[in-house]
């Protein structure tokens, strides 16, 4: 594998990638929604050979003491060994926790879901939104695939019926009420390899990159979350350049999300 880095560097210096893409091209992206009958909202995202399933489930629970009138958002990623020989059984790995937390922040910080509309009874009962991300095949860039799946699934999420007298959720009865989604954050993840910048790394590229930068952007061109990864550094100029790229690419990604 050590031979790959000089080869990839040489290609990137010429504005090329080993799969024929230009540095700031994504692989083919396909998004389907409403694919899991039991979920309140669901999506399947393919970025090249990377495949991710995302399911949204709602339940009713107690709000956090510091936000007694707001619903609760939880994002979780399960890196099952199903999807890659490098994933292991056992408690959540650092990678799976980072993956879910970066996607969580992209959604939470821009108030993509209007959590204030999810209060049933202040201090006592609010809707809890669980987003579960399951990679099916990891060929790199699970971050962007997971984030796309999360927002696509949220957009299609319907609230289950809540029986106020019995104070319980009727999980098998969906209402026609949509989850209040008001922003569409999308995540774009860049790699830096021997000084060259590019987007949407494959698994082979991910193994060679020096640094990684994920930026979540929303419709108005602002960023709602960032995360640097990898052991190499980034310059301030690079961060600014990539923020612009993220906004530009984000517009294209947002168009791929089905309206239902």
């Amino acid at each position: 594998m050590a031979m790959l880095k000089p080869y990839m560097t040489e290609l990137l210096a010429k504005g090329k990638r080993e799969d024929g893409r230009k540095p700031f091209d994504y692989r083919d992206i396909k998004i389907e929604t409403g694919i899991i009958a039991r979920a309140n909202g669901s999506a399947r995202v393919l970025i090249g050979k990377t495949e991710v399933l995302v399911g949204v489930k709602l339940d009713v629970g107690v709000p956090f003491p510091d936000s007694p009138e707001s619903g609760v958002l939880m994002v979780n990623a399960e890196l099952l060994p199903l999807a890659s020989p490098s994933f292991e059984f056992g408690p959540p790995s650092k990678d799976s926790i980072e993956l879910s937390r970066v996607i969580d922040r992209g959604i939470r910080e821009c108030h993509a879901i209007d959590l204030d509309k999810l209060c049933i009874k202040p201090k006592e009962k609010v809707w809890m939104v669980f987003i579960d991300i399951y990679p099916i095949n990891d060929d790199g860039n699970l971050l962007d695939a997971g984030a796309l799946g999360a927002i696509a699934a949220l957009k299609t999420t319907l609230l289950p019926k809540y029986d106020e007298d019995e104070e319980k959720v009727l999980h098998k009865e969906l209402t026609k009420t949509k989850l209040p989604v008001q922003k569409i954050p999308v995540l774009t993840t860049f790699g830096k390899l021997s000084g060259n910048l590019f987007v949407d790394a494959t698994m082979r590229e991910e193994k060679e990159v020096d640094a990684r930068l994920s930026i979540a952007t929303i419709e108005d061109g602002t960023a709602s979350a960032m995360q640097k990864g990898g052991s190499g550094p980034l310059t301030a100029e690079e961060v600014i350049e990539l923020t612009e790229k993220a906004v530009e690419l984000g517009k294209k990604l947002r168009k791929l999300i089905p309206s239902k």
């Binding site: 899991i36 039991r38 399911g55 339940d59 669980f130």
Partner: peptide, 8 residues
């Protein structure tokens, strides 16, 4: 999968 059943 956590979303495979009626209740998560």
């Amino acid at each position: 999968a956590s979303f495979s059943t009626s209740e998560r």
